[in-house]
Write a protein that binds this DNA or RNA. Structure first.
Lengths: 233, 233
DNA sequence: CAATTATACTGTATAGAAGACACAATTTTA
DNA sequence: TAAAATTGTGTCTTCTATACAGTATAATTG
């Protein structure tokens, strides 16, 4: 068997930024560490890449272990590789971010990992370079959401237009005009009227829609200026 | 000293997609390999990450070794990590792409590496997963150029508006209207009239501009819908 | 010198999107 | 019963993207 001469072997880790939405605020799934290093502090969910495991599969494994969820929106963000980013050993970390329907998670799995949903606005200080990872993930989320219709990934199966509006308001930390938002969303033909009404809302008036998954696939691959009115700052 | 238990050490490589522009077509700097593995075939420029080297520094080192250039536009694209992507050993590759002013390169360094500028439209088949890397880099370039004014990175210090237009036509493989393009570029205030004229042109001497670097910094960080008329297909 | 070609600049018309704003309908709450 | 909250639909204005016309200029070519 041929080998490469001399190159050094380096630890390859993965970290996962998991976004969720509870109807009001954008949330992060964070771990209160009860293991070393940095026990007692907050961090992202992570793990090491196994030798016989595809990188993408490792990211899915880590997400599944923590949330019990598969087939979520999961996208590679960037690889962080500063020499001293991990004080224990030289480790590079391939970072993924996920969008999760917060209602479908496995609560037991989350408890077992000592993980909690934290409002983005109340994010605690994280270990290592995890703060920078979250910053960049949020920037990327804003990019993506401006060009593609990924806001739906954070919604439950059935949702009202005002609920969807709140997702976008949370992502961009801004206020949108109800009437213009509604018109724009409807014009995309991404929504299918379920005929049901939202019985949980205060006025019980809201139409419940579900996603037109076929149309949605187009919007994921095609370029669409989804919200030019929003700035990415 | 503390160590992590059990995780496997994996080889970490870097590969670099280097874009250039010769006034007509978008080009790639590719290597005709005279070393193993896959000697005789075409590949991207690459190398291994050293143990005491930042990831970003390694990418710059690789670009410098090949082109003699520093301070180019260099951005991390994505990390490729399928188990069998490199048949020799388990290696993940962190991929960067660079935009290079083709006039400023070090021709000797390029020759020493047996590298050649190849028109993107005539790209040969590359080793391993390098074809997929190039595909994704082009997609990312189109994204970036639609939102930020990075077309200038491919230009020489002084250039005319029609030359710049050709860069954008090459990136998106399309034709643009002269009059609208000119008006749009001028309205960005990114260009400074040097007073000189293009002595190389065959017919009427075009005005030579240089980049307003201050304004350009804004356009790099701010979100700007730079070319909505272009599709990213 | 006339024809050709590439450049620069100024217009203009149209379609469509963005954004501001009005009003009606339904249900809860006080 | 009245007020408040929430949702849905409609309309108007402004602005921008884009297509397309025209004029002037500078250099080469035959």
């Amino acid at each position: 068997m041929i080998h490469y001469t001399h190159p050094s072997r380096i630890l390859v880790a993965l970290d996962c930024i998991i976004f969720g939405f509870d109807g009001e605020e954008l949330k992060l799934l964070l771990i209160k560490r009860n293991f070393d290093p940095e026990s007692g502090k907050w961090s992202l969910m992570g793990g090491f890449l196994n030798e016989y495991e595809d990188l993408e599969a490792a990211a899915q494994r880590i997400l599944y272990d923590l949330t019990g969820l598969r087939n979520n929106y999961l996208e590679q963000l960037q690889t962080f590789g500063a020499v001293k980013r991990d004080p224990v050993e030289r480790t590079i970390s391939v970072v993924y971010y996920a969008l999760v329907n917060i209602q479908q998670q496995d609560i037991n799995a989350i408890k077992a990992h000592n993980a909690y949903w934290i409002n983005l606005s109340e994010k605690p200080d994280l270990i290592f370079d995890h703060n920078a990872m979250v910053d960049q993930a949020l920037r990327q989320l804003r990019y993506k959401a401006a060009l593609h219709a990924i806001g739906f990934e954070l919604m439950p199966d059935k949702f009202t237009i005002p609920q969807l509006q709140k997702v976008y308001e949370a992502i961009y930390n801004t206020q949108l005009d109800r009437r213009n938002f509604s018109r724009k969303i409807i014009s995309t033909e991404l929504l299918i009227d379920t005929g049901d009404k939202d019985t949980n809302s205060v006025t019980k008036k809201g139409k419940l829609y579900r996603l037109n998954t076929e149309k949605y696939q187009q919007y994921l691959t095609d370029y669409v200026s989804f919200f030019p009115e929003l700035t990415l700052s």
